[in-house]
Design a protein around this nucleic acid. Structure first.
Lengths: 117, 117
DNA sequence: TCATAAGGTTTCCCGAATGATACTATGACA
DNA sequence: TGTCATAGTATCATTCGGGAAACCTTATGA
């Protein structure tokens, strides 16, 4: 996990929860409801089992994600957001909002550059 | 720069702006006002010139940070948040807020674990 | 003539994060 | 007897973010 330097302002815990190449994708799908391991794997193209497992384990460790194992064969494991996990929503919402305007900003910038050449 | 997978939900631009070991520290100080390169370097212990430069360049590329060069010797370069740069504040605010409660959450968790042993 | 300041750049290197691939366990079902 | 499904592990290879240290430029003042 990458470490972010800043004691003065308490922003790193959030970054620690959200950084990792697949965290956001995983959270996105879990915000839609409970998912099985294989459902997540199918929903997120290119993710490997190894990565999916490790990212889920980290989120579980941070109490964001709940893991429920059904003792059946073949195995069945369900992942869902914990109640605490839902508390990151405002952050994602703020990031999403900014992301939308940022995309417009980038486009505008490109058009200006075009005109100037 | 790390890439985050998720086209469906527009959260990656924000993460792209914020991830990088020193971005948050740099933004923190620039939110306080205009700073010279050396001021930032002195404010952020352990950061190398190379890292400070590259992080600032990325932020500049993203229109978050403004760089003003004074043609004097020895060089003088000032960095400040662009108007657009200020728009990331709600994200930082949300992250900060969550970070505070997360710290409490972690403490509580530890205490519970202590009691159980 | 030589050092100094300020803001870099360049080169080399390491370890962590991620990827690719193969392997495992186990009961149901054909 | 063999195959399949599911949710993983294990092992090895690669990539990439970041760190250390040296070098660069140029007007100025000692």
């Amino acid at each position: 996990m990458m470490k972010h330097d800043l004691e003065y302002c308490t922003v790193e815990p959030a970054l620690e929860v959200l950084t990792g190449k697949w965290k956001i994708s995983i959270l996105y799908f879990l915000f839609q409801g409970t998912k099985r391991f294989s459902e997540l794997q199918n929903s997120i193209p290119n993710i490997t089992k190894k990565m999916l497992t490790s990212q889920l384990r980290e989120l579980e460790e941070q109490d964001i994600v709940r893991r429920v194992v059904y003792p059946v064969v073949p195995p069945k494991v369900e992942y869902s957001l914990s109640e605490y996990g839902y508390s990151v929503e405002p952050i994602l919402r703020a990031m999403h909002l900014w992301g939308m305007t940022h995309i417009k900003h980038i486009q505008l910038k490109r058009e200006i550059q075009k005109v100037q050449t």
